[in-house]
């Protein structure tokens, strides 16, 4: 199990680094897909089958397809030639270092250090994670879910209106 965790964590990390390092936009997009797949595998290892599957379905399968669709229509050669100024590397390095320090500080702050993480109890009724998430979303939190749905619908309609404006 630890071996699998290391494998998929490495996959996600390599993908993440690839997104930043690759000059070719298509390679960068593919690294991102790789990273998503690694992340999905990690979710599935935690028995969160629904979250893992949705990660693949929504991010790797739908959003990244659209990204790739747009990137493919770009002039890749020009994109590959572009060089970034040194200052942007320095800036990125500073941000990453600061974040790393922050994470280490938080982890070492008394209380969480050395304590094992809480174990998620398996459901009493033996129901799958799909059922439990469904009951939470459409039972306890039905109202926020509806609100989010209406918000998304409004956003969709807004996009259609904005993109159709010139045809009037």
């Amino acid at each position: 199990m630890t071996f699998l965790f290391c494998l998929f964590a490495a996959l996600a990390l390599i993908g993440g680094i690839g997104v930043v390092v690759c000059r070719n936009p298509v390679s960068a997009a593919f690294s991102m897909i790789l990273s998503f797949l690694g992340l999905a595998s990690l979710f599935i290892q935690l028995d969160a089958f629904l979250v893992g599957t949705l990660q693949v379905l929504v991010y790797a399968g739908a959003i990244m397809v659209l990204f790739l669709f747009i990137i493919m229509l770009l002039d890749v050669q020009e994109e590959e030639k572009r060089r970034f100024p040194l200052i942007s590397f320095a800036g990125a390095g500073a941000v990453v270092t600061a974040f790393l320090v922050l994470v280490i500080l938080v982890l070492n702050r008394g209380g969480t250090a050395g304590r094992s993480l809480p174990v998620v109890a398996p459901s009493e009724s033996g129901q799958s994670d799909v059922h439990r998430i469904g009951e939470l979303l459409f039972g306890t939190y039905w109202f926020p879910v509806q609100i989010v749905g209406v918000l998304l619908l409004a956003a969709t309609v807004g996009v259609v209106v904005l993109s159709k404006k010139e045809l009037k």
């Binding site: 089958f49 739908a62 397809v65 790739l68 493919m72």
Partner: peptide, 25 residues
Amino acid sequence: DLDVGPLYVFAIASLTVYGIVLAGW
């Protein structure tokens, strides 16, 4: 024996498109 059967099929099948897109590109 997954509890997300059809979702799994859709998720993996949605990756098929990369092969075709990439072949074209």
